[in-house]
Amino acid sequence: MAKTPVQFRLNGSDKAVFVDGGENLLNVLRRGVGDMSAKYGCGQGTCGVCTVLVDGEPQLACLTLAETCAGRSVDTALGLSDGPNLHPLQTAFMEHFAAQCGFCTSGMLMAAKALLDRNASPTREEVAEAISGNICRCTGYEPIINAIMDAAAKRGGGSNREQGHARV
């Protein structure tokens, strides 16, 4: 099968891969470049565990054609922390015990990041709306919503590491 070369930036680093026609971004991330943080949950766009950011917008990697990512920036949970320094969302998820099995966590974090990047102080309803495409089967969502609200509050409170170097 003919392959197409695709170059994109992944968490700030250049990547070049050959992809099959019709191959999705999730497969390219996981099997192509070895970023396993985005998960396969349904392949149908109904569970959100493969949520990544493409040029800052949340996208379902399983429904995103890899070829359409040529020349664009892709961000995954692996790039969320700044070296050893956790992103405020990661810290908040830890403090609120907002993960159990952890399988939805990467996608949930990326959906939350997309929200906070465009809306620094969301309401509880806006948080629920932003993660409404992300299935979590363990937590009942409550601690996840609390964590996102808390991260927003703490970021709004001053020491906003993100503002220094928005990565997208």
């Binding site: 109904t46 948080v127 629920a128 993660i131 409404s132 299935i135 009942g140 969502y141 996840i144």
Partner: peptide, 13 residues
Amino acid sequence: DFNEYVMPGPGDI
């Protein structure tokens, strides 16, 4: 899929 197998979402808690 999760559109047909319905569960309460973050807005239904």
